[in-house]
Design a protein around this nucleic acid. Sequence first.
RNA 1: GAUCCGGUAGCUCAGCUGGUAGAGCACCUCACUUUUAAUGAGGUGGUCCUGGGUUCGAAUCCCAGCCGGAUCACCA
Length: 568
Amino acid sequence: MSFSELSSQEIQRRETLNKLREMGIEPYPAALYPVTDYTQGIKDNFVESKQVCVAGRMMSQRIMGKASFAEIQDSTGRIQVYFNRDEICPGEDKTLYNEVFKKLLDLGDFIGIKGYLFTTQVGEISIHVQEFTLLSKSLRPLPVPKTDDDGKVHDAFTDPELRYRQRYVDLVVNPQVKEVFVKRTKLFTAMRNFFNEAGYMEVETPILQAIPGGAAARPFITHHNALDIPLYMRIANELYLKRLIVGGFDGVYEFSKNFRNEGMDRTHNPEFTAMEIYVSYKDYNWMMDFTEQLLEHCAIAVNGTSDCTFGENQISFKAPYKRVTMRQSIIDFTGFDIDGKSEEELRAAAKGMGISVDETMGKGKLIDEIFGEKCEGNYIQPTFITDYPKEMSPLCKVHRDNPELTERFELMVCGKEVANAYSELNDPIDQRERFEDQVRLAEKGDDEATGLIDQDFLRALEYGMPPTSGLGIGMDRLIMYLTNNPSIQEVLFFPQMRPEVKMQKIELSDNEKLILSAVEKIQKGLLLDVKETVNLSNKAWDVAVKNMTKAGILKVTKEEDVLYIQIG
RNA sequence: GAUCCGGUAGCUCAGCUGGUAGAGCACCUCACUUUUAAUGAGGUGGUCCUGGGUUCGAAUCCCAGCCGGAUCACCA
């Protein structure tokens, strides 16, 4: 980037930087700064005249002649600091105050403050500055939102594109954004603590997988050079955690960054975080009890209460949650009983409900469509929907009482799935058949089916996996509920964005070349003549000439009301 | 992928039916010793998203494109 591409404010700050260096002040000093206090702690435990040393960004400056106020923002908040010229500069030389503080410090600079605490006449806790140190210069102006007496925010940094692309700026100027991410971390910590106290172990499993299994989704594909094989970014970690249960762990869990090469919208990001936990000798009934305890615990850890607000809805994560079978749910909302119905009867019923169906849909898919259209959206409070049809769940154990169903539940909150759990299928022969069914579906063109069989996973099951229940939770979605954010971009530090395109015109356009060659022939001539020669539209002419005069290639001069054009 | 809305100063935005680009904050200069959206006076700053077209003249109208947001569809 050349100097001329900087805005005037950026140029000023670079000049300021040079002036500081000329004065012998290093704008990026190496030494540590001996911070003793944080702003929040000072406000919580105010002690008059206490000596403190704080550091942070200067976020505002109010200069009133020989005295000034500024605000310092650190990781915990902001505090006001008071500068007095004659105390900063006791001698004749007032440079440190008049030049360095008043002129060479900019909003956004990191400074260190040594001083003592006091309250101003209007009662604001402040630091009386005795010494200040420039810790790091900021070369770009920060947007600085301000709140007026009526609580109205001015100059907010609100453009979502800028906020996501420059999250660092968003975090500096929008404290409520920081709060979301603090809560996100609290959620992860709370969940870890809950699992660890239950005696389960956090593990790591491969992100690069030779066969992307455990879910049905399009993977990202990459290539390993040394082995010369394709590798896939994981779409789920389920099959690896089960291998560990085979290996003899009682309970294993992992916070898994998963990658799916599918559409992006306000609830989907190509990489997202799931938590999966597998516990041996348990079934899905136990897992429901465990899940509701877990979520109550997490909600309280994050928000201090099991209640939370999401949009217009009040949600309570207090256990226990309602449990409804999928069959009962469909009866409740449509009056139709799916039990014992043939594929044709289901298709006719779905059609009758105004759901678009086609001939390729099997029983499971039809039931899923009915549930998705007519039932799912009605569950605002956390509700377990249980006993899904078999075709939809190739990794789940058949229901102990009904061979058409599986021992599966999903937890619905605000009409969306937050968690998914099974009594895990551990019959290796059944598992192999289900995989083979999936391969047949994939060959028929069902792009939701998995086309590759993970033979090693089947080998593991053949050695024997104890009865196990597993649970997966969409962490991004859960934190959206707990922080009342309707879009996933708000709960990810760096949501995926289309790459920034930098438009840089290095070469002359064709029009510009045309004009330039015409002018080169004559060196200097009447502007109107040249314009006529090149025969461009007014606008094209105007744009091209403006560009080139700006770049100093051409020069337009006026002599006695006649315009001339010449080589610059 | 479809539809709608938007892209103007560092930030938030105004700019009617085409006629010399505006405000507040930020920035610069000056004044001011407890202010708090500090205040008062003066000033700098723009590829009006890009490209083409219509026109004497386009931020404004037309076409194409790029980028973003919202809604819907898809993604169990």
